[in-house]
């Protein structure tokens, strides 16, 4: 079946595995975990000034389901605006896959991680506030 093929492909060949510089101003980091299964996931987004997600990387220590959903999520958010990315719900994926929404904690990790990463980015920007204008002027 087509749906599982796509996901299984992500499971076997995860995309976007790695790290971005967590101290960079244009990078937001989300670190989440599922105590039910003990999985941890770090997801990072590189975001342009106009709020476009330019790159996404993740590192997951957990089961195949967590890896597949992280990989899938990073593919999805790339090229989207942060507002669009915030609208991603795992239920959407589930719906598209026509699967029963079995409660698998690790598969909702990606959704939480995206939210956290964007919040982290926004926090960084707020902190910088007016300083940012000067920097752009200098460059």
């Amino acid at each position: 079946m087509a749906y599982s093929k796509k996901v299984i492909d992500h499971y076997e060949n995860p995309r976007n595995v790695g790290s971005l510089d967590k101290d960079a101003d244009d990078v937001g980091t989300g670190l989440v975990g599922a105590p039910e299964c003990g999985d941890v996931m770090k997801l990072q987004l590189k975001i342009s000034d106009d709020g476009m997600i330019e790159d996404a990387k993740f590192k997951t220590f957990g089961c195949g389901s967590a890896i597949a959903s992280s990989s899938l999520a990073t593919e999805w958010v790339k090229g989207k605006t942060i507002d669009e990315a915030l609208e991603i719900r795992n239920t959407e994926i589930v719906e598209e896959l026509a699967l029963p929404p079995v409660k698998i904690h690790c598969s909702v990790l990606a959704e939480d991680a995206i939210k956290q990463a964007i919040e982290d980015y926004k926090r960084k920007r707020e902190k910088k506030g007016g300083v940012q204008q000067e920097e752009t002027a200098e460059a």
Binding site: V7, I8, Y11, C63, S65, I93, S107
Partner: peptide
Amino acid sequence: EGFGGIMSVLIARNSTIPASATEGFTTA
């Protein structure tokens, strides 16, 4: 079969039988 074509275990191997498990389902 759960999300992403992953098997979600309800009754683990080597469980004494009879054995049972319940799971809730809803629609998407």
